[in-house]
């Protein structure tokens, strides 16, 4: 068998394998992607909440993307407490101003960053939240102060549509 012939045969087989592999990949993708959120789930990504009834010191919990969102109207003491904390004392340093656009309103995902439980309101060593699953303590700004959770509770994308309505997502 001449050298040339061998090369050509190798090329033919390599090309066949390569083209075949592309096809297998292209076929597998839809089977994987079907498990991603579908169009109807994505369409529900934002929700509007009426907060006109929420007085200072009160928290409401709403469902957004299947998870609880805490909307707390904080008292002046809580705001002062949150602002007074030194950044060095924090495990996940973040200023209160960066977490609450309007200091009176704290909007955050009510999910412990440790393993996803829902923390309890007005509990724990820092007057904020306390996660009963593995004992994480959060302060009045929802920042992690003590316990196994690695980061502060997440702030979702939200905006005030008007003074009574918050749009989350």
């Amino acid at each position: 068998m001449s050298e040339k012939k061998t090369n050509r045969r190798d090329f033919l087989f390599t090309a066949t394998y390569a083209v075949g592999a592309v096809g297998v990949g292209a076929t597998i993708w839809p089977m994987i992607d079907q498990m991603n959120p579908d169009a109807s789930v994505k369409a529900l990504a934002s929700t509007e909440v009426d907060v006109s009834e929420v007085n200072p010191g009160k928290t409401i919990t709403v469902l957004w993307r299947g998870k609880p969102v805490f909307i707390r109207r904080r008292t002046q003491e809580e705001i002062a407490e949150a602002k007074s904390v030194k950044l060095e004392d924090l495990k996940d340093p973040q200023k209160d101003e960066d977490r609450a656009k309007d200091p009176e309103w704290l909007v955050m995902l009510g999910v412990c960053t440790h393993l996803g439980c829902v923390p309890l309101d007005q509990k724990g060593d820092y007057n904020g939240w306390f996660c009963p699953c593995h004992g994480s303590h959060y302060d009045t700004s929802g920042r992690i102060r003590k316990g196994p959770a690695p980061t502060n509770m997440e702030i979702p994308k939200y905006e005030f549509v008007n003074s009574n309505t918050i749009k989350i997502g």
Binding site: R9, L12, F13, A15, T16, V19, G20, V22, G23
Partner: peptide, 16 residues
Amino acid sequence: LYLIILTILVYFSMKR
């Protein structure tokens, strides 16, 4: 189109 191309490649591989 892809299947036709692959079929042609496989056909010649088979002949070989």
